[in-house]
């Protein structure tokens, strides 16, 4: 029963995280949420008794992909208008609504 509760909460958190990755207005926040998403995916691989996949996901899903996204985010927002901070760009423009 405890195991089922663990499953259900993990799965609900995964879907909730995916939703927030796609709807949060701040792109940096979305990337950080995606890193956490990869981490929880690794937990669910462990639960499904796929340690091979969990190893790969632990290395790639949360580490490498997160670093790739952070680097790309910096490149896509850095030299747009002088030296603005990373996530101000998207936030300020979206917050008008």
């Amino acid at each position: 029963m405890v195991v089922s509760a663990f499953d259900i909460i993990l799965c609900l958190t995964l879907v909730w995280l995916a939703w927030h990755v796609l709807t949060s207005q701040d792109l940096f926040k979305a990337v950080v949420l995606f890193i956490s998403f990869g981490l929880l995916m690794a937990l669910s691989w462990v639960r499904l008794q796929a340690p091979d996949v969990a190893l790969a996901e632990a290395a790639i899903g949360s580490g490498l992909t997160g670093a790739l996204f952070l680097s790309a985010l910096r490149r896509m927002t850095s030299h747009r208008r002088g030296e603005r901070r990373l996530d101000c760009d998207e936030v300020r423009e979206d917050e008008g609504q």
Binding site: A54, L55, S62, G63, G66, A67, L70, L73
Partner: peptide, 21 residues
């Protein structure tokens, strides 16, 4: 083993953050 990889790779994202973002 997965926990070991987790502990090693956790530092990667923060280093990427510090250096790139």
């Amino acid at each position: 083993d997965v926990a070991l990889v987790f502990a090693l790779l956790g530092a990667l994202a923060i280093v990427a953050f510090v250096r790139r973002a």
